[in-house]
Each structure stands twice: as C-alpha cells, then as structure tokens.
C-alpha cells in the first residue's frame, strides 16, 4: 500500500510521517506540492510544519498548490487523507473539513506530550483504536485552537465526527476540547497533535501514534478485498 506524504515549502514533519508509514508496514511515497500527479498512491498525509511560512493564515496558500487540487478531488472520491497540525489547517482552508484553526487563546506556542481520548474509530485513520481509549502523543502548535459555529459543533458531535478530544488540559482553547475531526464519510481526518512523533520508544513519549498509520493500511486492504 502506497501512502503519499506531501512536502510543501516549509513542511517540517514530512520525514517523520514517512517513517511512521514505513514502521506501520506501508510504502511511503514522497510527493511534491508543485506536482499535481500523486503517483498512484492509495492515501495521502499532509504533514506538520509551516507551509509558506504560515503567511496570510496557516494553510491558506498551501491550499492552492497543484498537488492539493488533485488531493481535494480524490478525497471527495473517498481516498483517505490525514492532515496533521499544519495539514489539519490546510484541510480546513480547503473546506474538506469544517471550522478553522486560530491562534492559541494564551498566545504562546505550546509543545508538550498531550493526553487524548479517541472518540471515534469509524474513520480510515482510527479503526485500530478503541472508542474511549486514551493515548499520549506530542502536541506542538501556535495556532491550534479549533473554532466553528455552534451549529457546526453540534453537527460534528451528533454525527460522531469528533475523532479525538484533549484530556486533562485544553492546550490551545479549542472549542469543546476538540483535537481532531473527520469529514462525513470518515476518509478525511484532521488532527492537531502529532501521532508520527510517537511511533518508536527511542524518540517518542509512547508508541500510541502508530495506530493512525496501521489503521489506514487496514482500511485500504479491506477496501481492496
């Protein structure tokens, strides 16, 4: 199974994301933002970082990259897409996910090992977790406060599209402690914390993040059989 990882100018975590894919047992394929051809990948990860220097708004310029045009089309057809941190911001700017990510309410960049509760395993990226399972993975962002109007928030809750929630501390002022959401079909997931930094004991606080990458491989195998 080929999982593409897109590199934008200013991406930081593309290599870690590719490494996480390989550790999970998939083939990681490097994709370039300027190339509309996705090289036949089965799923795509938009990694963390500061695409285009976070100028204008985080993800606002990356959204118009040639690779994104193809990814948006394929996402509407059901291809699994995971946006981590800056990738989550790009997915919201692309309108593949509702809401927006705004400056942390306390204005500081936050970097910590964060406890999350998995709220939905009905997505392509979380099927290997149990609902209610708590995991600890790194979080690092300056603009991670998830906002949406009350109706959208109610809709996300009602349709089971809140994928993960912060536990203990709300690190950035996200509405309803939301750390991650999915689209209605469950193939597109945005997550503010970084599962790709928690896949090996040597470098991560846990290996709790690995499930995101094994889940999509399971989903793709199921889709093919």
């Amino acid at each position: 199974m080929k999982i593409g990882v897109v590199t934008f100018p200013g991406s930081l975590d593309d290599r870690d994301a590719a490494r996480a894919v390989r550790i999970a047992g998939g083939d990681a394929v490097a994709l370039w933002h300027g190339d509309a051809d996705l090289g036949g990948v089965d799923a795509v990860i938009l990694p963390g970082g500061f695409s285009y220097g976070d100028y204008l708004r985080c993800g606002a310029i990356a959204r118009f990259a040639p690779a994104m045009r193809t990814i948006i089309e394929r996402a509407h057809e059901g291809m699994p897409v995971l946006g981590i941190c800056n990738g989550f911001q790009i997915l919201c700017e692309s309108h593949l996910l509702p809401g927006a990510l705004t400056r942390n309410d306390h204005l500081h960049f936050v970097c910590r090992d964060q406890r999350l509760r998995i709220e939905s395993n009905a997505t392509a990226w979380t099927s290997d977790y149990a609902v209610g399972q708590e995991i600890v993975i790194p979080l690092k962002n300056g603009e991670g406060g998830f906002v949406a109007d009350e109706r959208t928030l109610d809709e996300l809750e009602g349709e089971g599209r809140v994928v993960a929630r912060y536990v203990g501390v709300n690190p950035n002022g996200s509405r309803r402690d939301i750390a991650g959401i999915s689209n209605a079909a469950g193939n597109v997931v945005g997550l503010m914390p970084h599962p790709e930094h928690a896949v090996e004991e040597l470098t991560g606080p846990t290996t709790d993040g690995l499930g995101f990458f094994t889940s999509v491989l399971t989903a793709l195998v199921a889709g093919r059989s």
Binding site: T102, R103, N104, D105, H106, L107, G145, V147, D149, G173
Partner: peptide, 13 residues
C-alpha cells in the same frame, strides 16, 4: 477582521 464572535487573543494582548 475576525468576526465579532471569534476570540482575538492578539487584540486582547
């Protein structure tokens, strides 16, 4: 401008 209902931490600072 941010919509009135959106928290503006920079303005607050």
């Amino acid at each position: 401008m941010l919509k009135p209902e959106i928290l503006d931490p920079q303005g607050r600072a």
